[in-house]
């Protein structure tokens, strides 16, 4: 929350706020836009809560990553309940439990350390019981 790029999307990042195209329903996140990627045209957007649950569209298990990551690290493309698609790291899940379609829930976590200051965002864990 101190570098300008992180500060610019602080609200959206901390509260999973997205912007939905009133014409086609595409959810822009985390920066608000005035043009729609799906309509390929200028569009009006409304602020929405993206919800905290979603489904895995596809996934990988990362085995080779630079310093700053622990491996094996599951990574997924996730469709959130209110229409947004995001990248998400999966926590509290064994690699063999991952499947396409697995239901996951947002989990607030440390992402990285920037000059001693931790920066936070959401990872996802499988929906429990």
């Amino acid at each position: 929350m101190h570098t300008p790029p992180v500060w610019r999307i602080a609200r959206e990042n901390a509260r999973l706020i997205g912007y939905r195209c009133r014409r086609c329903g595409f959810v822009e996140f985390p920066e608000p836009r005035k043009t729609c990627k799906r309509c390929r045209a200028p569009a009006e957007f409304e602020e929405i809560s993206m919800g905290t649950r979603g489904k895995i569209v596809s996934f990988v298990v990362q085995h080779r990553l630079p310093e700053g990551f622990e491996t094996p690290l599951p990574l997924a493309v996730i469709d959130l309940e209110n229409g947004a698609r995001v990248y998400g790291q999966i926590v509290e899940c064994k690699p063999e439990e991952l499947t396409v379609g697995l239901e996951v829930e947002a989990d607030f976590r440390v992402f990285y350390d920037d000059a001693g200051l931790r920066v936070y965002s959401y990872k996802f864990h499988p929906v429990r019981g």
């Binding site: 622990e70 926590v91 989990d107 607030f108 976590r109 440390v110 992402f111 931790r118 936070y120 990872k123």
Partner: peptide
Amino acid sequence: AASDEDVVTLSVTAAR
């Protein structure tokens, strides 16, 4: 706490 859990993440989750 996992390496990506800390006072802030746990407090935020509890507060929510």
